[in-house]
Amino acid sequence: MLSPAPAAVTSDPQQLVVAHRGASGYLPEHTRASYELAILQGADVVEPDLVLTADGVLVVRHENEIGETTDVADRPRFADRRTSKVVDGVVRTGWFAEDFTLDELRTLRAVERLPHLRPGSRTFDGAFALMTFDEVLDLAARSTTPDGRRVGVLAEIKHATYFSGLGLDPVPRLLAALDTRGWTTDDAPVMVQSFETACLRQVADGSGVRIGQLVEAGEVPYDLVVARDPRSPADLVSAAGLAAASRYADAVGLEKGLIIPRDPTGRLLDVTPVPRQAHDVGLEVFGWTFRRENRFLPLDFRVGTDPAAPGDLAGEIAVHLAAGMDSVITDHPDLARVPHPAAVPALA
Rank of each mutant, 00 (worst) to 15 (best):
P4S: 15
A5S: 15
T10I: 06
S11W: 14
Q15V: 14
L16Y: 11
V18D: 01
H20L: 02
A23S: 12
P28Y: 00
P28Q: 06
E29V: 00
H30L: 04
R32T: 14
L37W: 03
A38Q: 13
I39P: 03
L40M: 13
L40P: 00
V45C: 01
V46E: 04
V46Q: 05
L50T: 01
G56V: 00
L58C: 12
L58V: 07
H62R: 06
H62C: 02
N64L: 06
G67K: 06
A73H: 08
D74A: 14
R77K: 14
K85N: 03
D88E: 09
V90C: 03
V91R: 13
T93P: 01
T93C: 08
A97F: 04
E98V: 06
D99I: 12
L102C: 07
E104W: 05
L105R: 03
R106C: 06
T107S: 09
A110H: 10
E112C: 09
R113M: 02
P115Y: 02
H116Y: 04
G120H: 15
T123F: 14
T123H: 12
A129V: 05
A129W: 12
T132E: 11
A141N: 01
P146M: 07
R150D: 10
G152H: 07
I157W: 03
S164V: 06
D169H: 10
P170E: 00
P172I: 08
A176P: 04
L178R: 00
T180E: 13
R181N: 02
W183S: 00
D186C: 08
M191G: 02
F195A: 02
E196Y: 08
R201E: 06
D205I: 02
G208H: 04
I211S: 04
Q213F: 00
L214R: 00
E216I: 02
A217R: 15
E219D: 05
V220Y: 08
V225E: 12
D229N: 09
D235A: 10
Y248L: 12
A251I: 09
A251F: 05
A251N: 05
K256A: 10
L258Y: 03
P264H: 10
G266D: 02
V271H: 09
P273H: 10
V274I: 15
R276T: 10
Q277N: 14
L283V: 08
D300H: 07
F301E: 04
T305M: 11
P307A: 03
P310H: 13
G315K: 05
I317Y: 13
A318E: 13
H320I: 07
H320Q: 13
L321P: 06
S327M: 05
V328Y: 13
D331W: 07
D331V: 07
A336V: 03
P341Q: 06
A342C: 08
A342T: 15
P345Y: 09
